[in-house]
């Protein structure tokens, strides 16, 4: 499995004087292959999240295309793209929150329940245990701290054992030990065959990654 970005770019419009269109991401080529963990590092506002969102079908590029199995995912209708995201992709959004009316466990199994998938409660409990939040299984998502919510989001992204994992700052609110645990989980997923895209500030992410890219002012370049 591979997901391929061909010349994808995204412009935005800002109200103000002068030139209002700007490139959040300049035309970029990137291929994510199964079994590899690709890390993208860069400063805030450099375009990392925009790139991640375009790759997982959440933000339509203004230029270029995203290919999955040779098909442009943005040529699909919303239903097909959503189902593809649900079955094939695990997303940890930058803002890691959950549905407040559901418990942590219910939030974690959400992607598997949405299209009538198998019951993954056991695996969900296992993931929550690994992430150190097993005791919060029956707590409502709205009651969690930032770090707890982040770990819930990581578990949710892994629940369907996806082919592609897009993790946008999955360790934002976590301590070093838990950061290592999360990176370890993503590394493990890559070794089991997933293509993993890790967007992070963490410098030690390189130790877990097969490839590292640096994003700067919307331009992606090979890193250290």
């Amino acid at each position: 499995m591979e997901i391929k970005a061909e010349g994808i770019a995204r412009t935005f419009f800002r109200k103000g004087r002068g030139t209002n269109f700007f490139y959040a991401v300049h035309p970029t080529d990137l291929t994510l292959r199964s079994g590899t963990l690709t890390a993208v590092v860069g400063k805030s506002g450099s375009g990392k999240t925009t790139l991640a969102n375009m790759l997982c079908g959440l933000l339509r590029p203004t230029e270029g295309r995203v290919l999955f199995g040779g098909e442009n995912v943005y040529a699909w209708d919303d239903r097909r793209r959503s189902e593809w995201r649900s079955r094939k992709i695990g997303v940890v959004p930058q803002v890691s929150s959950g549905l407040q009316s559901l418990t942590v466990l219910e939030n974690v199994v959400l992607p598997s329940a949405m299209y009538g998938g198998a019951d993954r409660t056991g695996f969900a409990r296992e993931l929550l245990k690994t992430l150190g939040v097993a005791e919060l299984s029956d707590v409502y998502a709205g009651e969690l701290s930032g770090g707890e919510a982040r770990r819930m989001a990581v578990a949710r992204a892994l629940i369907n054992v996806p082919e592609l994992i897009v993790a946008d700052e999955p360790t934002g609110d976590l301590d070093p030990e838990m950061t290592r645990t999360v990176f370890g989980l993503l590394r493990n997923a890559a070794e089991k065959g997933a293509a993993v895209l890790l967007i992070t500030h963490e410098e030690n992410a390189a130790a877990f990654a097969d490839r590292v890219f640096v994003m700067e002012k919307g331009t992606l370049s090979p890193g250290f």
Binding site: C56, L58, D78, R79, R81, S82, E83, R85, S86, R87, I89, V91, P93, V95, S97, G98, L99, Q100, L110, P111, M114, Y115, R156
Partner: peptide
């Protein structure tokens, strides 16, 4: 909005 964005991120279509 945030909740719905999360739902979309985990695969909910507009119809869902």
């Amino acid at each position: 909005k945030k909740e719905f964005a999360v739902l979309r991120a985990v695969g909910a279509s507009r119809r869902v």
